[in-house]
Amino acid sequence: MSEQQTSGVVIITGGSSGIGLSTAQLFAQKGWRVGLIARGIAALDAAAESLAADPASVATAIADVTDGAALRQAAATIIEALGPVDVWINNAGVSTFAHFTNMSDEEFRRVTDVVYMGTVNGTRVALEQMRPRNAGTIVNVCSAIGLRGTPLLSAYSGAKWAMRGFTEAVRAELIAERSRVHISVVYPPSVNTPFYSHATARIDGLPRPPPPVYQPELVADAIHFAATSRRRDVLVGGQTVQLGLLNAVAPALADRLLASFGPRSMTSSNQGIADARDENLFRPTSRVSSTHGPFDREARSRSVQLWATKNRPSLKSALTFGAAVCGLMVVGRPR
């Protein structure tokens, strides 16, 4: 895939709700043919219907990303319908909110298998398609939690950190073989999606994203940017940048701050959140989900940080020009 490609075929795992569906909608709006992979047929059908008037531009396939053979078959079904895959997005995710010692072995393993091994399986299938053509981009959707582990989310934190390390290793291997296949990582902040309604909970209260919360369309924009610009990493939101910097510069302080404020900021007793509960750790959800969760009133739809990231070359040029003008003014000032 060239760095300026504006259309093609994109395959998205976990594409029937939340960030995955929002990303699918954005790619479809920009003229891409979209393939969606998820576990539930009803949700997939509803997602496909929402994407485009032309049914030939959308294909769906059922698979659990923990099953590599099923994922490979799902990809083959979509590719047969739409053509060779140009962009593969590993987005599927589940979680359990609980103190580590209150989480069962099965729950911990399931989160790890979906979030981490699902990414491994998806990357393997994508590379099988892309390496022979020496073209394509894989986008792994990580999290701010991949920059700093968070209490109540030990399994999810560990899986996202594993995803990050895995991606770095495979990227280096591709560079070593001079491959033109590119791997990018996107780090979303807290996002208003059904993720929190779907998560298993072993806590006092109900799971919620710690503020500030952003809308999924913003993350979809970042994923599309990562896929088409071939940027190595794309962080979304000032919260994500600050969390990564804090953990790099003062990890002990991060420990104390998250111990004090983390659990309180991640639980709620709101009835609207309770009404939206539909756990999906071990089974597909029983409802057709949307892109948004129950946090629209507080969610932000813009990020100055993401805008600056996308316009980095222009900002650099503007700053350089501004510095040059200031320098000329200083030099030319009468003495």
Results as ranks from 00 to 15, higher is better:
residue 271 Q to N: 02
residue 270 N to Y: 01
residue 301 S to Q: 12
residue 320 T to E: 08
residue 314 S to P: 09
residue 325 V to L: 06
residue 288 V to T: 12
residue 313 P to V: 10
residue 304 V to L: 15
residue 293 G to D: 02
residue 311 N to Y: 08
residue 316 K to N: 01
residue 319 L to S: 09
residue 323 A to V: 02
residue 291 T to H: 01
residue 289 S to P: 05
residue 270 N to I: 03
residue 282 F to M: 11
residue 322 G to K: 02
residue 279 E to I: 06
residue 268 S to D: 00
residue 296 D to F: 08
residue 291 T to E: 11
residue 269 S to K: 02
residue 324 A to W: 05
residue 276 A to I: 06
residue 302 R to F: 12
residue 330 V to E: 04
residue 308 A to M: 14
residue 293 G to L: 07
residue 266 M to H: 11
residue 304 V to N: 04
residue 268 S to V: 01
residue 276 A to W: 07
residue 288 V to P: 08
residue 277 R to K: 07
residue 323 A to D: 08
residue 286 S to I: 14
residue 319 L to K: 11
residue 329 M to N: 12
residue 269 S to W: 08
residue 276 A to F: 10
residue 265 S to Y: 10
residue 313 P to D: 02
residue 317 S to M: 11
residue 305 Q to M: 13
residue 287 R to P: 04
residue 269 S to F: 10
residue 295 F to Y: 10
residue 318 A to T: 11
residue 273 I to K: 05
residue 286 S to L: 15
residue 300 R to K: 06
residue 331 V to C: 08
residue 264 R to P: 11
residue 278 D to H: 03
residue 280 N to I: 07
residue 273 I to R: 06
residue 316 K to L: 14
residue 268 S to C: 05
residue 301 S to P: 07
residue 289 S to E: 02
residue 323 A to P: 01
residue 309 T to E: 10
residue 285 T to D: 10
residue 281 L to A: 05
residue 301 S to D: 14
residue 285 T to L: 10
residue 271 Q to H: 10
residue 324 A to H: 07
residue 292 H to T: 08
residue 303 S to G: 10
residue 292 H to R: 15
residue 330 V to I: 14
residue 266 M to Q: 05
residue 294 P to S: 03
residue 292 H to P: 02
residue 274 A to T: 01
residue 319 L to H: 12
residue 287 R to C: 03
residue 285 T to S: 15
residue 297 R to E: 15
residue 306 L to V: 00
residue 308 A to F: 05
residue 263 P to L: 03
residue 325 V to N: 08
residue 265 S to W: 13
residue 317 S to I: 11
residue 293 G to W: 00
residue 290 S to N: 13
residue 285 T to G: 15
residue 321 F to V: 03
residue 308 A to K: 09
residue 308 A to G: 03
residue 322 G to S: 09
residue 314 S to G: 14
residue 325 V to K: 01
residue 305 Q to H: 06
residue 307 W to N: 09
residue 288 V to M: 06
residue 292 H to L: 15
residue 310 K to W: 02
residue 270 N to L: 10
residue 322 G to M: 00
residue 328 L to W: 10
residue 313 P to W: 00
residue 291 T to I: 02
residue 265 S to A: 09
residue 272 G to Q: 13
residue 299 A to R: 03
residue 295 F to M: 14
residue 291 T to N: 08
residue 308 A to T: 13
residue 328 L to R: 06
residue 273 I to Q: 01
residue 283 R to C: 06
residue 263 P to Q: 11
residue 327 G to W: 01
residue 283 R to V: 14
residue 328 L to V: 15
residue 327 G to F: 04
residue 278 D to I: 04
residue 327 G to D: 12
residue 326 C to V: 13
residue 273 I to E: 12
residue 285 T to R: 03
residue 315 L to I: 15
residue 264 R to W: 04
